[in-house]
Design a protein around this nucleic acid. Structure first.
Lengths: 216, 216
DNA sequence: TTTTGTGAAACGCTTCACAGCT
DNA sequence: AGCTGTGAAGCGTTTCACAAAA
């Protein structure tokens, strides 16, 4: 078992698990890397390579036993225990993320929202997640065993918030705020930059436009 | 100028532009790849390589002229014209995205939300973006020159919605729904999978946990 | 001297192709 | 025969290191 697994691989593991859940629900017993590959739009050898990082999970001549591989992946991804999640920032995005069904489905426990605006503190999201004062983060994080923070605050407060999160002892951060954040080495930071995603698409459109009209 | 630019590069171009905007606001005249690199946490040579794809944008011995590079990047990313964006799905996430300030800032025009639920059609988001019937997408897309669709619908309807979007003549799609989507080759699809992002973090936590407690 | 632009080396990820197991 | 697991090849991205320019 190699000691460093790339993020590209872990992302795909999550995709494999999602499809295995679907197969499991349908009562399918085994699945080959070929079938998995066709469904997910990746190469079969890549799936075998990804899975082989964690042992010999398949059966030669047969494929992968759906129930076993599903259990294995859940364990590899750490989804067999319920992880506590805090959402920082009770703006539009934070509230939407707090109620996002995809987070609850695979064993995450959305414990609370946090904000610094006193007018928001004390109320709840539509789905019933309570909004607390950001100053209570550390206490609640310890009490509720929160290990993941999702940051959805404006760019201006992002740095300060990350600091608060790290000081509260949280070691995994999913960041939706724009801008580069720095965290200590023991903290894992993953950023989803919505503006970057959209501008990247814009680049594609700009290129296509230039490509179709050739010197007229 | 190479004819294929990787998505890794275009994502970084967007980050460079964001920081250049900041420098421009502060009145800074020039910046070196070294300074840029330190701020953004990437290697200086990578920045030079990225930019060199689009010509000789810098000045040897000096660095890059902030105003010029900023203008150049805006043009490269196609942000010098205002692109029309439609958000499909007026749930929590769609509504949050419609009002997301980061989208408006860099020259995108959020034209409308679309949903199939008649109870939502006719109302507006908090920020004032109107919700239309998804059946009117094609007509409105043509009239308002919408070139980008942001998909924020439940997994079950995602496939159908992509089809509708493609038929409406939209050629760039930013997808927030889980699951693999297939689009024709002339359409650019970029997916942000929130569940995958969170599960990837969970993997990191599972690994760390196993690492600290060694056989006790 | 400073800093870019870029061949060449290094690195990492994916695919090929097949031995090995069922 | 069928399908996994994997060494080796292939390919794309990043970093090194330095010539060229200001």
């Amino acid at each position: 078992m190699p000691d460093q697994i790339s993020e590209l691989t872990t992302n795909r593991l999550s995709l494999y698990l999602r499809y295995l859940n679907e197969l499991y629900g349908k009562g399918v017993r085994t699945v080959s890397s070929k079938v998995l590959a066709e469904q997910l739009g990746v190469h079969a050898a890549l799936i075998r390579r990804d899975l082989s990082n964690f042992g010999e999970l398949g059966v030669r001549g047969v494929g992968y036993v759906v129930e076993d591989l599903r259990r294995e992946l859940r364990s590899i991804l750490g989804l067999d225990r319920k992880l506590g999640v805090a959402i920082i920032g009770a703006g539009n995005l934070g509230l939407a993320l707090a109620d996002y069904p995809g987070f609850r489905r695979e064993g995450f426990r959305i414990v609370a929202l946090f904000d610094n605006l006193q007018t928001k503190v004390g109320s709840v999201s539509r789905g019933g997640v309570a909004i607390h004062d950001i100053r209570d983060l550390e206490e609640i994080a310890r009490r509720e065993a929160i290990t993941i923070a999702v940051i959805a605050v404006p760019e201006a407060s992002a740095r300060e918030v990350v600091q608060t999160v790290v000081e509260a002892g949280i070691t995994a951060v999913l960041n939706f705020s724009p801008g580069a954040l720095r965290v200590p080495p023991h903290v894992k930071l993953k950023s989803v930059d919505l503006t970057v995603s959209l501008e990247s698409l814009s680049f594609y459109l700009a290129r296509e436009a230039g490509r179709s009209q050739n010197g007229d």
